[in-house]
Design a protein around this nucleic acid. Structure first.
Lengths: 338, 338
DNA sequence: CAGCCTATTCTAAACGTTTCGAACGTGTCA
DNA sequence: TGACACGTTCGAAACGTTTAGAATAGGCTG
């Protein structure tokens, strides 16, 4: 910028004025400066600008698992709308791990992001302290944090799972296995609550043996399903609390030489692009990923531009049960044998 | 930092010295300063540091499609190793679009990233000019750019597709449809070349009608497959040049009421976690995503630390044909009817 | 004891912006 | 003609670091 100023024979203040349009500049100088910018190929240094302005036009985005199609779909739309608003996105992934999560958040804050969009791995105190301490516009997605009162967009997880479970019960299933995500997350807890609520509504007993706690990943779900299916009285149906885990569930079913849906019915949270082209066509709960992403991005943009109400806004969206073919009436299911 | 200096009654230079360990400081002052840092809760401002040092410890990562599991797998490992090396990752996605690509790269460069890892959407001149002009350490992944000579890690696409095609030919298929990715990309071109090479090696004629150019996305692949399957003499097998497209292929097959593999064999580039649990078990070419990510990250780290050889390094990895059940001998395939 | 060396600490410039307030020239009005 | 307002331009400080080189103090050597 100094070079430009020299070349155009003006002060840096004037150059800054024409670049930012922040002050009136005579047409003559303006064109001289613009020309000098062209000639020199000048690009404003965003770092220096950030230092002075205290703003980076960058938002930090941390999701639990970048390998999970649900998150990547959401990330893609967030990225898209933020980019249109002139913001860059710094992406991290905590790998469903709280230690990693703290590190990553520190890294984002260290880089002076202007705001944070987070799908937390777990409910640890350190994270909450960091978030509170950073005093940045923050929006939580997918998962809430106990005692942290910020903007958020989440699903009505309880209702969605309740509906799905009720659907299975409606098919006559009485022993429904449940592969849970981590109970450290609000989604893990809410989804399980939905399962329990459905049981209760149907006056079915809740059995501890039927629920296994995983961590939203395929491997643990595989083990959990194995246990479920080799137990004394195996369930006639299984619900998986997310998309990655259902793959583990299906692998276990395959390895144990059972057939879905003939011998075990399966349903799962999160829809897939291929859910109705590969067999068995999975019955799932579809999340409105587009809306989640858009709303999250909009919430943070509103905060950043200071035009949000002071009170945090909490958006709760509804899932949609996509009934396909992986669940069938229990009357058609051969009796489970110990 | 000024506050810390005041609190400890020393100069900022000394504070800086203890924070960075860049100069010897007496134990007494050191502890006084460390204490002051604790009390104040001081955090060094990375922006100011970047401005002074001209380095951000951030690398820009642009992939073609963040929704594509291949890319997300690679991104995850790159992110992981860079994080361990103290680098943050700024992620963009060009959406397989060259305009977007230019914008995104500008955005990254504008943010003063220290290096670039790119899976380019296409071979446009603007991008090349920007890359050349930025004069940043750059590594290309997955796709090369004609005339840009940087570090890169790619797959031996030609060989992989040739093997897969030869495998199908070995099963007796003579009319093999090919759903290509964009020929603007090196992967698009190389994979098609592999298909052609296999045909040639088997002394089979290359027929224009059998190949359809998509853009690596599901929707176009669906249309392309529809055309292929409704053509006068439909192919007995179809190869899809990537993972997203094969879903379109399968949807088209379903919608046209054909059965895979009974009536059409299918194989595809890129493996899936669920490829051998949902039916039909897809035959695919698995890419070594872990290795690709690790090597790409290592290449950029080496460049950044200045310990690379001057000449660009180009790593070529091999794919692995995962033979499952979506291809069957043509003798078992009912004769295709016009 | 003077001179010198070493170890530690400090001063101040620099990184590239933005912006406040001052300065300047010109025209208007009383 | 002097006072003043207005429109434009500029000088300089500030953002929070790093670092070269100066300064200081103390100890050693001859």
């Amino acid at each position: 910028m100094l070079d430009v100023a020299k070349a155009a024979n003006v002060s840096v203040a004037t150059v800054s004025a024409v670049i930012n349009g922040s002050a009136p500049v005579s047409p003559e100088l303006r064109s001289r400066i613009e020309q000098a910018i062209q000639v020199i190929g000048y690009k404003r240094n965003a770092i220096a600008r950030s230092l002075k302005l205290g703003t980076t036009r960058t938002v930090g985005l941390m999701v639990a698992d970048i390998t999970n199609p649900f998150f990547t779909d959401v990330v893609a739309v967030i990225q898209d709308v933020l980019h249109r608003a002139g913001y860059a996105v710094m992406l991290c992934c905590n790998d469903e791990d709280v230690e990693m999560q703290d590190e990553q958040i520190e890294l984002l804050i260290d880089r002076s992001v202007d705001g944070l969009i987070i799908a937390p791995a777990g409910d640890d105190e350190t994270l909450k302290r960091i978030i509170a301490g950073a005093n940045l516009p923050t929006v939580l997605i997918d998962r809430l944090l106990d005692g942290i009162d910020t903007d958020a967009v989440v699903l009505d997880n309880r209702r969605a799972v309740q509906d799905a479970t009720l659907y299975m019960i409606g098919l006559g299933h009485r022993r429904i296995g449940y592969i849970s995500g981590s109970l450290e997350t609000s989604t893990g807890r809410e989804r399980l609550a939905g399962y329990k609520a459905a049981l209760e509504a149907a006056k079915l007993p809740y059995e501890d043996d039927l629920v296994r706690i995983g961590n939203f990943r395929e491997k643990d779900a595989y083990k959990a399903t194995m246990q479920l299916l080799t137990s004394a009285e195996r369930p006639t149906a299984i619900f998986s609390a997310n998309n990655l885990m259902v793959i583990g569930v299906m692998k276990a079913i395959r390895d144990i030489c059972l057939k879905c849906p003939e011998e075990v019915s399966v349903a799962s949270f999160d829809d897939f692009p291929w859910a109705d082209v590969f067999q068995p066509h999975l019955t799932t709960i579809a999340q409105p990923v587009q809306a989640i992403g858009e709303q999250a991005a909009q919430l943070i943009l509103d905060r950043l531009s200071g035009k949000s109400p002071a009170a945090p806004r909490r958006l709760v969206l509804q899932g949609r049960l996509m009934i396909r073919e992986s669940c069938r009436p229990v009357s058609l299911t051969p009796r489970a044998i110990a």
